[in-house]
Amino acid sequence: MRKANDLLVQYATYHRDRRNIATHFVGIPLIVFAVGVLLARPELGTGTLALTPAWIAWGLATLWYLTRGQLAVGIAVSLLNALLLALGHTLAGGSVAQWLGWGIGSFLLGWLIQFVGHYYEGRKPAFVDDLSGLLIGPMFVAAELLFAMGYCRQLLSDIERRAGPTVLRDLHSPA
């Protein structure tokens, strides 16, 4: 049960190029949105209180995020994920082709954007070495959003002290 600081530092070591971080602001939300679309079926119940696999996964992930020791980040990532899943659910009610088209299309586009970012980084995605990176990615984006808004300065300082500052990597030099 590692703490958010350690998880975010480990993830940040794979994400120091600002262009890579910027692609994560698009790619990761697209992937979470896609998961919301794809896991919106089947529904247990009807209407706004319908329970889906997406909401079960969200509940479990939220418990995990809220117990990592950074409550503001845990709340932020949980709210952002809930918004993306809710948006994804709105597209899951169409035909099977629409449901799969939106879900798979958004998923693949999100990963394509991620891999473009990692080209700039010169490193493979973090999840290749540790599957928990799939949960940490949305937390990283939420933390970066909080940092950009001036919140969680101590966490940002800890990440930069341990993982280094963000940079614009020279693409003509090896990583």
Results as ranks from 00 to 15, higher is better:
K3G: 10
A4N: 09
V9G: 07
Y11I: 10
T13F: 05
Y14I: 09
H15S: 08
H15L: 09
R16H: 01
R18C: 06
R19Q: 06
R19A: 09
I21V: 11
A22R: 08
H24W: 04
F25W: 14
G27W: 03
I28Q: 04
I31Y: 04
V35G: 04
L39M: 00
L39P: 10
A40N: 03
R41W: 00
R41V: 13
G47W: 01
A50F: 00
T52N: 10
T52A: 05
W55M: 15
W55G: 09
L60C: 09
L60N: 08
L63R: 15
W64K: 05
T67C: 05
R68D: 13
G69K: 12
Q70M: 03
L71C: 10
V73W: 10
A76L: 06
L80Q: 06
A82E: 02
A82P: 05
L85F: 02
L91S: 01
A92G: 15
G94D: 04
W99K: 05
L100P: 00
G101H: 03
W102V: 08
W102A: 08
W111R: 09
L112Q: 11
G117N: 01
Y120T: 00
E121P: 09
K124Y: 12
F127C: 04
D129V: 07
D129Y: 12
S132P: 00
I136M: 07
G137W: 08
P138R: 02
V141F: 05
E144C: 13
E144V: 05
F147N: 13
C152W: 06
R153L: 14
S157L: 14
D158G: 07
E160C: 08
A163P: 02
G164L: 07
P165T: 15
T166A: 12
V167L: 11
H172G: 01
A175V: 14
